[in-house]
Computed example of a mutant assay.
Amino acid sequence: MIYVFIGIGGIAGSLLRYFVSIWTDHLWAHAFPYGTLIANLTGSFLLGIFTRKYGNNEKVNRMLVLLIGTGAIGSYTTMSTFSTDMIKLIDKGDFGIALLYILLSLTGGLAASWFGYFYPFRKVRT
């Protein structure tokens, strides 16, 4: 039954990822893979929040955690598209864009995940 929940989440996440790509292609016609970057950064942020709040929360149904975290957010973010985008940029000789894409994806993804994991849950001093 776990696989069914992860699969349902995966369908939703991959469709959302596809719509982000279509949306960004209409906004920015450029060699830079904005759709993948946006999906990976927003997904990293959301997974950070979700993991911190629900990852080890025994009050939340484990199937729901797997459906959203592993299924939906996991399929929304995409390492394979990131890798393919990199190969295409390098193949076209766009080395500067490829380097920028790597830096933004890796540092941005880590920063977004950190920010999502810690920032919304910080203690406010009064």
Rank of each mutant, 00 (worst) to 15 (best):
F32P: 00
G48Q: 03
T84V: 11
Y119A: 12
W23M: 14
T81H: 10
L15N: 10
G116R: 08
G43L: 07
L64F: 07
N40T: 03
G93E: 02
F115G: 03
E58W: 12
N61S: 12
N56D: 13
G109I: 00
I102L: 00
F19H: 12
T107R: 01
F115K: 03
T81L: 09
Y54W: 13
W23K: 10
T78A: 10
I87H: 01
I8L: 13
G108A: 01
L37R: 03
Y119N: 12
A29G: 06
L110E: 04
G9R: 14
D91L: 06
F121A: 13
N57Y: 12
K53M: 09
F115L: 08
R125W: 06
P33H: 00
G116K: 05
M63H: 07
V60D: 04
I97W: 00
G93I: 03
F5S: 10
L64S: 11
S14T: 15
F118H: 15
L15F: 12
L100F: 07
L99Y: 02
I102T: 00
G9E: 09
P33N: 01
L46R: 11
D85R: 00
F32C: 03
N40W: 04
T77N: 14
G55T: 12
K59I: 05
W28K: 04
G74K: 07
L100W: 04
I8P: 08
S75W: 06
Y54N: 13
K59Q: 07
G35F: 01
S105P: 00
G35R: 04
G108H: 00
S14F: 15
L100T: 07
A72N: 14
I6R: 08
G7E: 13
Y76K: 11
T42I: 03
L15P: 12
L67R: 05
L46G: 09
Y18E: 06
A72Y: 10
L106C: 02
V20K: 08
L46W: 08
W114K: 03
F82N: 02
G48R: 01
T42G: 06
Y119D: 14
M63P: 08
G96R: 05
A29V: 05
I97C: 03
L104W: 01
S83P: 08
S83G: 08
L106K: 03
I38F: 09
A112W: 02
L15G: 11
I38G: 05
P120Q: 15
I38E: 01
Y54S: 09
G69I: 08
S105G: 04
F121N: 15
R62H: 13
D94M: 01
E58F: 10
L41E: 02
A39P: 05
F82C: 06
